[in-house]
C-alpha cells in the first residue's frame, strides 16, 4: 500500500546557500615538502663537503656528485632505462600476481567460515617460512629467467595483502551490515555495497606494505642471477669494486620505490577521503 511516490511537503524551507570558505592562509615554511627536504639536503651537503676534504676515501664512499655522474652517464649511454625498466616490470608483474592471488584467497577466507577452516591454517604455516627460503626451489623449478623472479616477488607481496584483506573483511562493523540487511540486500549486494567499501582501507594498507615487500624481494631475486636490472647493478658494482655503481643503484631503488608508493598513496587519498581520521598538529 505505502510504496507510492507521494509527496511529503517539508516543514522546513530551503536555507540560503553556504558562503564559500575564505581561502586558507598557510605559512609557506611549514609546508610538509619543505620540512621533509631539510635533513636530506643537509646530509648531501655535508657528505659532499667531507668527500671533497677526503675524509671518506673515494674507493669506499664516493661523493654525491660522483654518484649523480654515474647515473647521468648511464642515462646518456641508455643502459639506465633498461635496468630501471626491467626491475620495475618484475615488481609490477609480481605485485599483480601476488595481489590477485591474495584477493581471491583472502576474500574466500574472509567471507566463508568453511574456507577459513580449509585454507587459513595452511596459509599461516606457509607464512612462517621465511619467504627467501623459496628462492633455490623456484630457481630449480622455473630456471633463472623471469618466471622464478616474478614468482618470488609475488610470494612476498601475497602475505601482507592477504592478511589485510582477511582482517579487513572480518572487521566490518556489524551495525553497518545490519543496515544493509534491513534494506533486504542479498549476500552479493551486501558484499558489494557494504563489506567491500568498509574493508577498502585495510586492503589499501595491505597493498602498500605488499608493494614495499615487492621491492625488497626484487633485490633478492636479482642478486641470485640476472643480466639486467638494478639488483644486477649491485652485483656488478661489487665485482668491479665500484661503490658509485652500488650507491647509484640504491638511490634509484629509493626513487622508484618511493614513486610507486606515492601512486598508491594518491589512490588511497582519492578513495578514502570519507575516512574520519585524526589530524596531527
Amino acid at each position: 500500500m505505502a510504496k507510492n511516490q507521494s509527496e511529503v511537503s517539508g516543514v522546513f524551507t530551503a536555507r540560503g546557500k553556504r558562503k564559500p570558505l575564505a581561502a586558507k592562509l598557510k605559512n609557506p615554511f611549514t609546508h610538509p615538502f619543505l620540512l621533509g627536504s631539510i635533513f636530506p639536503l643537509l646530509l648531501v651537503v655535508v657528505w659532499e663537503a667531507l668527500s671533497r676534504l677526503e675524509v671518506f676515501p673515494a674507493y669506499q664512499l664516493p661523493a654525491p656528485s660522483v654518484i649523480l655522474g654515474t647515473i647521468v652517464g648511464m642515462a646518456e649511454d641508455g643502459t639506465l632505462w633498461g635496468h630501471v625498466g626491467i626491475t620495475s616490470y618484475r615488481v609490477f608483474m609480481g605485485f599483480l600476481l601476488g595481489t590477485a592471488a591474495a584477493v581471491v584467497l583472502g576474500s574466500l577466507v574472509g567471507f566463508y567460515k568453511h574456507a577459513e577452516a580449509l585454507f587459513d591454517p595452511l596459509i599461516q604455516a606457509f607464512r612462517s617460512i621465511p619467504s627467501l627460503a623459496w628462492v633455490p626451489l623456484f630457481i630449480l623449478w622455473m630456471g633463472i629467467g623471469e618466471p622464478s623472479k616474478i614468482a618470488m616477488i609475488a610470494v612476498g607481496v601475497f602475505f601482507p595483502v592477504y592478511l589485510n584483506i582477511v582482517s579487513g573483511i572480518g572487521g566490518v562493523d556489524r551495525k553497518l551490515i545490519e543496515v544493509g540487511k534491513m534494506y533486504g540486500l542479498n549476500t552479493f549486494q551486501l558484499v558489494r555495497r557494504i563489506i567491500l567499501p568498509a574493508s577498502l582501507p585495510s586492503f589499501l594498507v595491505g597493498l602498500r606494505s605488499g608493494l614495499g615487500l615487492g621491492w625488497m624481494f626484487v633485490v633478492a631475486a636479482e642478486l641470485m642471477g640476472a643480466s639486467q636490472g638494478l639488483g644486477y647493478l649491485l652485483v656488478v658494482g661489487q665485482n668491479t669494486l665500484a661503490p658509485e655503481t652500488i650507491i647509484a643503484s640504491i638511490v634509484l631503488f629509493a626513487v622508484i620505490g618511493k614513486l610507486s608508493d606515492w601512486i598508491l598513496k594518491i589512490l588511497e587519498i582519492r578513495t578514502l577521503h570519507w575516512q574520519d581520521r585524526a589530524a596531527k598538529s
Binding site: V8, S9, G10, V11, F12, A14, R15, K17, R18, H273, W274, Q275, D276
Partner: peptide, 14 residues
C-alpha cells in the same frame, strides 16, 4: 529538505 538538510547533500558523515 523536510528534515532541514537541503544544501547538505554532498557532505560526508564525518
Amino acid at each position: 529538505q523536510s528534515v532541514g538538510l537541503a544544501g547538505s547533500e554532498k557532505l560526508y558523515p564525518k
